[in-house]
Amino acid sequence: MLGGALIVLVVWCVAVVLVDERSRRIPDSLTLPALAGAVAGALLSDPPVVLGGVAWAGLYLVGRGIGGGDVKLAVPLGIVAAAAGGIGAVLLAVAVAGAVTAVRGLLCRGPVPHGPSMLVGVIIAVLPGVIAGVSCGA
């Protein structure tokens, strides 16, 4: 049922990673449609989860070294995390993203793009809820 949506999501994630790894920036053409779609979908189905995106982006706005593309990417990822597991999942995703970027920076001995780490963070934060929701019977 969700096969087509899942394919689009995977293609989008791959595009974000490839572009950010290559150019060290995530263009508006990748972030703004995702941001608009996530906000619109959340407002139509579960408005409070928008706060997850606002919270993640807000944390990045007060921090240093985070680019505008990462701030815009934080909104849809925060909404997804909040929808899947509440504010705890958002905070877990932020923490994992920071840790992954820090480890990559140490291993690579220099600056690394943060977008791929954000995607890893949200996957780790959302996966337990997805697995728990999988029905093997009916």
Rank of each mutant, 00 (worst) to 15 (best):
G4N: 10
G4D: 12
A5W: 14
I7A: 15
I7N: 01
V8Y: 13
V8W: 12
L9R: 01
W12P: 04
A15C: 12
L18Q: 12
V19N: 06
R22D: 13
R24H: 14
R25E: 13
I26D: 03
P27C: 07
D28W: 04
D28R: 07
L32I: 15
A36E: 03
A36N: 02
A38V: 02
L43E: 09
L43M: 14
L43I: 11
L44V: 10
S45H: 12
P47Q: 06
V49R: 03
G52E: 07
G53M: 00
G53Y: 03
V54E: 00
V54R: 01
W56P: 05
W56L: 12
A57H: 00
L59W: 12
L59D: 02
G69Q: 04
V71G: 09
V71P: 04
K72P: 03
L73P: 05
A74K: 03
P76C: 01
G78T: 04
G78A: 04
G78Q: 03
I79G: 00
A83P: 00
G86D: 03
I87C: 01
L91H: 09
A93N: 09
A93K: 08
V94M: 13
A95K: 07
A97Q: 06
A99T: 15
R104N: 08
L106Q: 13
L107G: 09
C108H: 15
C108Q: 15
C108N: 14
P111A: 15
P113W: 06
H114E: 10
H114Q: 10
M118L: 07
L119W: 08
G121M: 01
I124W: 09
I124E: 02
A125F: 12
G129C: 00
S135L: 06
G137D: 13
G137T: 14
